[in-house]
Structure formats: C-alpha cells, structure tokens
C-alpha cells in the first residue's frame, strides 16, 4: 500500500507493507538511522519520534499509522539550517555518552517542552522517565533540558 505523510517537513509517499513497523520503515527504507531501537517493545524510548508534535514510540507503530501525519525524527529536529537548542544543550552539558538513547531522549524532551515550556527539574525527570539511558544517570540530561527550556523561552520574543 502507498503511505503518504510529511517527514521532517517533506511530503513523501512510500509503497510499503502496511504491517511493517514504523521504526523499520524509517531506518531501512528511508535510511534515517537516527531513530534507534533498544527493545522493540515500548520499554526504552530509543525509537521515539514526534507524530503531530507528540512523542510516540516508532517500534509500536505500523507503517499505516504514519499515513497523513506530520512526522519528525531526530534528523529533522534542526530544520531550515538552524540549530535546535536541545541537541546543543546536550552537547554542552555532557548529556551524551554512548549517545544511543540521545535521539529519542531529545525528541522526548522536545515534546515535553512543547507541553511545559518551563519545567522544574522534577517535571523534567518525570517527562523523560519513559526514555531509558544506561550511561549517564540522567543528571546531565536534566541539566541540558533545563538549559534548553531557558534558551527557548529567551528566544521566544524574537521568533
């Protein structure tokens, strides 16, 4: 079946088996390997993507469920040549070690900041609690998300 959706700001149409998992479509058909798979069972968050701005687990979605949606993967987060404050803050605060959780973590945090632009540290911890990281202990991730939140808020008036 042909599935049409917007991917990172571009309209695409793909001829795929509607039962294939979204994570496989992204990684294998589209070469967008920034979306990771850590468990395939909805338990780690590594495969997080944004679907109409909301964080979803692409290992639990089927190709057909992409249809008509606005999909953002990590590769599309910093669009139009600009940089997004989240990846920048992750780098600056040392929130990346092996980095395998990082794309999903950043997208999870992006969804959190959409909903709650000025989260407390506890709210950040709660917001990213569906994304597992085995390397960092999360503290520097929380630092990074807090800084990105500030940066987005400060940047807001001009945008």
């Amino acid at each position: 079946m042909t599935v049409q959706f917007n991917l990172n700001g571009r309209r695409i149409a793909l001829d795929v088996d509607p039962d294939r998992r979204a994570v496989d479509i992204l990684r294998e058909e589209l070469g967008l390997t920034g979306t990771k798979e850590g468990c395939g069972a909805g338990e780690c968050g590594a495969c997080t993507i944004l679907v109409d701005g909301v964080n979803r687990l692409s290992c639990l979605m089927l190709a057909a469920q992409l249809s008509g949606r606005e999909i953002t993967t990590i590769e599309g987060l910093s669009r139009e040549g600009g940089t997004h404050p989240l990846p920048e803050a992750f780098v600056k605060h040392g929130a990346v070690q092996c980095g395998f959780c990082t794309p999903g973590m950043i997208l999870g945090a992006a969804a959190l900041l959409q909903e709650n632009p000025a989260p407390t540290r506890d709210e950040i911890r709660r917001g990213i609690s569906g994304n597992l990281c085995r390397c960092t202990g999360y503290q520097k991730i929380v630092d990074a998300v807090a800084e990105a939140a500030r940066a987005i808020q400060e940047g807001e008036p001009s945008s």
């Binding site: 990684r27 294998e28 390997t33 590769e75 780098v91 040392g94 990346v96 395998f100 950043i106």
Partner: peptide, 23 residues
Amino acid sequence: RDFLRPDAPAKAAGVEKYAVDHY
C-alpha cells in the same frame, strides 16, 4: 579543563553510524 566531547554533536543529531546502523 572541561573539554566537550567531539563525538557528541553527531550523536545528538542522529547522524553517528553505530554498528547497528549499517545495512
């Protein structure tokens, strides 16, 4: 002194190729 990890930007942008990203 703090020295930011040179591997972090590519990892955070989702473009670093791990073994598993090779097909």
